[in-house]
Design a protein around this nucleic acid. Structure first.
Length: 506
RNA sequence: CGGGGUGUAGCGUAGUCCGGUCAUCGCGCCUGGUUUGGGACCAGGAGGUCGCAAGUUCGAAUCUUGCCACCCCGACCA
């Protein structure tokens, strides 16, 4: 029978405020709903922009702090460059402008005035800017125009600067955290006296990103270089880390570019070497964005909600009291505060949720949704026995432990969870990485299973484009740590010296 | 910008084909009480220009026309 009315696509559970959509049934709905319900972010009145809510931002802040620490450890300092870029700057580097022109927000006027025909305001036509301003999609151009003034001699090098900023790229289609019109990021821009030093810098920062992803985000990543097709606009070489999400799609989690002398030439940044000769400096740039939040969510979370690795969880342990009446709460609070104090002494962040407006069950579900790694429940039973109940978010298991020495147990559990979350993601990636030698097999498995595919490619852009058109899969990277292996391109049969990584990507 | 779809309370929706006590239900919110070891229950309550405008009609959420907004698919992309 034909339905006269389309069935609403949305998961119209009448329990809207309860369970999430199932991850396995509708990955996008699950993701969107999770982001909103876990209090991470929501859409803003402006299309494609995002409101990051306090809880979501607190996770981003933890990422920021850790990354910033790692940047400082590798000799970088922070600075801030302007939001607006004169239009002419952007066109100084040819491939750069070509890459970004299609997605730039442009400021043309600087004033509004009352609408003579109505109640509102209009753009004042008198206030047109002589030169339009671009809202930065990335800051290479402003920064290199500034570097021209900062660099004269080899003594000024290397220049190792990072900035935390927002950028705007007017994308056609957006998705919370993964692709928003405005996003927060960090962009490092460095200048060096030699090519080798710049290449090393780009590689160092790639390693920093990979280490951050694996150690803090519990996210295994592939390190590699992009093909010329996928390279950053204006770069000579683009390094990247690629992660695999639970729906079998790849996500580029960070990039690091060796810029050669392209921007130095475009902005005339020269330095005098020891021997007095003038030469253009060598550059790099590298960045990670709030997209990492998307990666974190998609890599670990389940049908109950977010799963946060302890190293990035704003709340690592939540203590939930189970009580009847004021008197019992007072007794439990005493114990809870003592536990909180002993955990905090170990640098563990603890929240004691003693609200009497929500039931314990509600709190359990709520903190699971928010990904809190450990939950400690204390009730009358525990008061009697001198115990607490500890529940793990990652495995959803519960255990009863003696109250004394609980700080040690919690500390160990947090470490174990961190490792386990990483291992789980790694196992998933390994199970979803397939070596393929025939194009037919590749196409079939891409639809059936997804994931990363290691395949031979003849090294030409034409073949890469053809595969992209026919399958929507792209070369995510040419991996750095893969041994050379002679073979034949799965499409053209031409010789290849190494397998590359294909996947459908976000 | 092409192709498809949807606008009803804070959120999710029924009703639209066939105009007439139809503004439905769930969640959330407020009040009172009983509850609290996995999203509690009962009773009561507040909340709506049915996206906007015009038209047809005795009568429009429902039909017609125009506009607006949002979503999905494509092109673009970290």
């Amino acid at each position: 029978m034909e339905l006269t009315k389309p069935i609403p696509k949305k998961f119209n559970l009448d329990k809207m405020s309860k369970g999430l959509p199932k991850r396995s049934e509708d990955y996008s709905a699950w993701y969107n709903e999770l982001v909103k319900r876990a209090d991470l972010a929501e859409n803003s009145p402006v299309r494609g922009c995002m409101v990051i809510k306090p809880y979501g931002y607190s996770i981003w802040e933890k990422m920021q702090n850790q990354l910033d620490k790692m940047f400082k450890e590798t000799g970088h300092t922070n600075a801030y460059f302007p939001l607006f870029i004169p239009k002419s700057f952007l066109s100084k580097e040819a491939s750069h402008v070509e890459g970004f022109a299609k997605e730039c927000a442009v400021v043309t006027h600087y004033r509004l005035k009352n609408d003579p025909n109505g109640g509102g305001v209009i753009v004042d036509p008198e206030a047109k800017l002589e030169e339009e301003l671009i809202v930065r999609p990335t800051s290479e151009t402003v920064i290199w125009s500034t570097y021209k003034n900062w660099i004269q001699s080899y003594r000024d090098l290397p220049l190792l600067v990072n900035q935390w900023a927002n950028v705007v790229r007017w994308e056609m289609r957006t998705r919370l955290f993964l692709r928003t019109t405005e996003f927060l990021w960090q962009e490092g821009h460095t200048a060096h006296a030699t090519k080798q030093e710049a290449v090393e810098e780009a590689e160092t920062m790639l390693k920093v990103y990979a280490e951050f992803a694996e150690t803090f985000m519990a996210l295994p990543v592939l390190k590699g270089v992009k093909t010329p097709n996928e390279r950053f606009a204006g770069a000579v070489e683009t390094y990247c880390i690629e992660a695999l999400m639970q729906d079998g799609k790849a996500l580029q989690a960070g990039t690091s570019h060796f810029l050669g002398q392209n921007f130095a030439q475009a902005f005339d940044v020269k330095f005098a070497a020891k021997d007095g000769k003038l030469d253009f400096v060598w550059g790099t740039s590298w960045g990670v964005s709030t997209r990492l939040m998307g990666a974190l969510i998609m890599a670990h979370s389940d049908d109950e909600g977010l799963v946060l690795p302890p190293n990035l969880a704003p709340i690592q342990v939540v203590i939930v009291p189970i009580f009847k009446g004021e008197e019992q709460l007072t007794k439990i609070s005493e114990k809870a505060q003592a536990i909180k104090k002993s955990l905090e002494a170990k640098g563990i962040s603890v929240k004691f949720d003693n609200r009497d407006t929500q039931s314990p069950g509600w709190k359990f579900a709520e903190y699971e949704l928010k990904g809190v790694p450990l939950r400690v429940a204390i009730g009358p039973r525990d008061l009697e026995n001198g115990t607490v109940e500890i529940a793990r978010r990652d495995t959803k298991t519960k255990q009863v432990e003696k109250m004394e020495g609980i700080d040690i147990i919690v500390e160990d559990l947090l470490k174990e969870i961190q490792t386990n979350v990483y291992q789980k993601a790694l196992t998933f990636r390994e199970n979803n990485t397939t070596k393929v030698d025939s194009y037919e097999e590749f196409k079939k498995l891409l639809d059936d299973k997804g994931g990363f595919f290691l395949a031979h490619w003849d090294g030409t852009s034409e073949t890469e484009e053809k595969i992209k058109e026919e399958t929507k899969a792209t070369i995510r990277c040419i991996p750095l740590n893969l041994e050379a292996e002679a073979g034949k391109c799965m499409v053209t049969g031409k010789p290849s010296s190494q397998r590359v990584v294909f996947a459908r990507a976000y």
